[in-house]
Design a binder for these strands. Sequence first.
DNA 1: CGCAAGCCTTGATCCAGGTCAACGGAATGC
DNA 2: GCATTCCGTTGACCTGGATCAAGGCTTGCG
Lengths: 233, 233
Amino acid sequence: MFKQFGIGAPSEFFTQPPSVGVSIARSGQLDELVALEQLGSRRSFARDAEIYAEGDRADCWFKIVSGTVRICKLMADGRRHIAEFFHAGDCFGLDGEGERTFAAEAVGDVIVMRFNRAATERLIDERPVLARCMCNMMLRNLAHAQTRLLLLGRMTAPERVASFLLELAERRDVRRVLEVPMSRNDIADYLGLTIETVCRVLSAMKRDGTIAIPNPHRIEICDRDALEATVEM
Amino acid sequence: MFKQFGIGAPSEFFTQPPSVGVSIARSGQLDELVALEQLGSRRSFARDAEIYAEGDRADCWFKIVSGTVRICKLMADGRRHIAEFFHAGDCFGLDGEGERTFAAEAVGDVIVMRFNRAATERLIDERPVLARCMCNMMLRNLAHAQTRLLLLGRMTAPERVASFLLELAERRDVRRVLEVPMSRNDIADYLGLTIETVCRVLSAMKRDGTIAIPNPHRIEICDRDALEATVEM
DNA sequence: CGCAAGCCTTGATCCAGGTCAACGGAATGC
DNA sequence: GCATTCCGTTGACCTGGATCAAGGCTTGCG
């Protein structure tokens, strides 16, 4: 019955970065979540396609079925900034009521469920438990944003890269072999660095045996302790 | 009837940075908000006092009656990071369920209302409109955090300082004369710079007539266009 | 297969902002 | 009133990461 929507059992509908723990939707909410799933429509996007643009009306939100999405912004002079990556199972696009302040783009090929904002709000008003789910989800997003503020505000390049690798590992719940769907450029714009610096730091980590890089989109953590020691706060 | 709680009419109970606009609590919610006010107790803190520490249980949250609060973290090697400043009328401390990941400290003398988390949640379950208020408040916090990510990730020192001054002006809803309650050190740790860089940028702006600095805690915006042109995105 | 277009990587050089150091001026205490 | 402490400001110098430049490695396509 739920299979039709691909991954994610309904009890994990609002699942987000496992990093912050605590599955939100708890027993007793199945009805609501099923109703919510039925409001969505499936969409797919090719690599680098725009899911929504800066300035679009924020009248819908998405849940990722498969693939990775970047939430980003291009400054007038060409500098680019990536606010967040979202992976399979994550929800994104739940912004304020007005216009999008960031764009959402497909990192590789992506399949999402698209939900109408108004319909969702109606459902939430009927079933208040859902409001709690949303609050919790946003709390986790906020906690993550604050971790990133620390990273961008006070960490060195090696700390940022180490932190990024550990985050990837945690999100995918993998201890050793990381699949890295995004380009070096994406990583740089996410970490507030340049592509060259990202490469150099990765090469240095490879040189001293902390990681292995069988190919650019696959990184293996060989010495997790060393990585963790790098970020040590 | 509401005067006893100092500033903030009940219809603005959850008021937050005006930057993102839209007052959340709308008519028809007065009862709930009054009930909420009565759950709180008044506390005051002297300059630099810790309102809560990193690692404390997050069993309460606060609304600022007067003064300014910084949400911050000290790294093992002494680097400090300020995630956010909150001003009179703002709510803070609404984190996840577990431990505080940041500390909250009084920038100057501060008076707050303290609210019990469990009691608030009970109230929210009874009066679901409040859940929407909270969601909206967190959405605005999140939007603000993302603006800050861009600032820390991709902006130069002059851009950061200009952006900070404009934010101060907007929050206080003042166009020219800014009261700056925090120290240069606080500003530096908020903008991901050093105190010397903050001073130098401010001095440069003063030199070319963009701002005036009658004393360190008062800055006047003389040429708003120049400031806005600096941050231009 | 050969060629072109994208990435990724590495090296050489540069510079924005960090670090170190000195000093001034207001607030606090004796 | 004087000493002390705490900020804020300014100057001199240094460095981490940016910028510029040159290949290398895939992938796809004629």
